[in-house]
Amino acid sequence: MTHMQLDLNLLAALDALLEEGSVAGAAARLHVTAPAMSRSLGRIRRTTGDQILVRTGRTMTPTPYAIAVREQVHDLLQQVQGVLAPSRELDLTTLERTFTLRWHDSLVVLGGPALLAEVRRQAPGVRLRFIAESSIDTPGLRRGEVDLEANANRPTQPEIRSDRVAETRQVIVMRRGHPLARAEAVTAARYAEAEHVTISRRGRFDNALDETLARLGLTRRVVATVPTEGAGFEFVRESDLLVTAPESTTHSAVADLGLVLLPLPFELPPAPVYLSWHQRYDTDPAHVWLRDLARTALAGPTGGGNQSTP
């Protein structure tokens, strides 16, 4: 038993070392001291016959062996933790748990309040932590730092599950007195000739919409990019700029701001909404419960697709 316990501790240490790339980072991750983690690294080196991490200047670099086994080590650790986790009947009235949700900001607006209201009604001891999306891809789901993601991106990693829970079409948002504020005034050419603000957490000036315009022989001029829809709406309130945004999340906001919505004058496929999670939570009763509530909240009153992706 002692030998098995030692192996499990080393597996957890190795996973943390490979994820963090430093002894100090791995120690903080596992809530142990740096010297204790250094001793674990020494045992791992003796056990594997590999240095695992080697110092290059002021940083540590993983060896080719460490890079090769990183995913396998992580998967093994998750399997072990799944086997050892006690299986209990879910009692929502006594459940105390905090779930971290990284959703696109428009989806927090669209489905967050309804989700929280239902969670509080069924499980008052549960808290929801909504966090902002990063401007770069982060391995939050795989590292267990995020329980549920919701955005327009279908995950490609095999260990990440996803459901397409809804879709929404894009609409044009402009000020009420805009020269194009009548549907019959908006043509594809006039849309392209206008100046635009795009909404992108990564700061991208173009998106799928521009690819569609290009096929029509048109190019639009994007003068700014902003990270949230709320910011985009403020930019168009007092100008002749246009912003294109998902219809499902704009209706409630634009009326109060004196803005109008108009349909795009060309065909653009609707934007999907994916709910994503790590496969380690597939059979976690509390997570299954939260996923079901999140699907309903994100589908909204109009409903949406629901296609599971393994």
Rank of each mutant, 00 (worst) to 15 (best):
M1T: 10
H3E: 12
L6M: 08
L6K: 09
D7H: 04
N9K: 10
N9W: 10
N9V: 03
L10Y: 10
A13W: 09
A16K: 14
L18R: 12
L18H: 13
E20V: 08
G25F: 00
V32S: 07
P35F: 06
M37V: 04
M37D: 09
I44V: 15
R45M: 12
G49I: 09
D50E: 15
Q51A: 15
T63S: 15
A66L: 08
V69Q: 04
E71F: 09
V73H: 05
Q78R: 13
V80N: 04
V80W: 13
V80K: 09
L84W: 11
S87P: 00
L90T: 03
D91I: 08
D91H: 14
R97I: 10
T98C: 14
L101D: 02
L101H: 07
V108R: 15
V109I: 11
L110Y: 15
P113H: 10
L115A: 04
A117G: 02
R121Q: 15
R127A: 12
R129T: 00
A132S: 08
S135M: 02
D137T: 13
L141D: 07
R142H: 02
R142P: 00
E145D: 15
N151C: 07
N151D: 14
R154S: 03
R154I: 05
T156L: 10
P158T: 04
R161H: 12
D163V: 11
V165W: 11
T168V: 06
R169F: 09
V171K: 03
I172W: 09
V173S: 09
V173K: 07
M174A: 03
R182Q: 14
R182T: 06
A185P: 00
A185E: 11
T187W: 01
Y191I: 00
A192F: 01
E193G: 00
I199P: 02
G203E: 01
G203H: 01
L209I: 05
D210A: 06
G217L: 07
V223H: 00
T225F: 01
P227D: 06
T228S: 13
T228Q: 04
V236K: 06
R237K: 12
E238A: 14
S239L: 01
P246W: 03
S248H: 10
H251Y: 12
H251P: 01
V254I: 15
G258V: 08
E267I: 03
L268P: 00
Y274N: 05
W277L: 03
Y281G: 06
T283R: 15
H287A: 15
V288H: 03
L290T: 14
L290F: 14
R291N: 14
R291M: 12
D292N: 12
R295E: 08
G300H: 10
G303R: 05
G304R: 06
G305V: 13
T309G: 13
P310G: 04
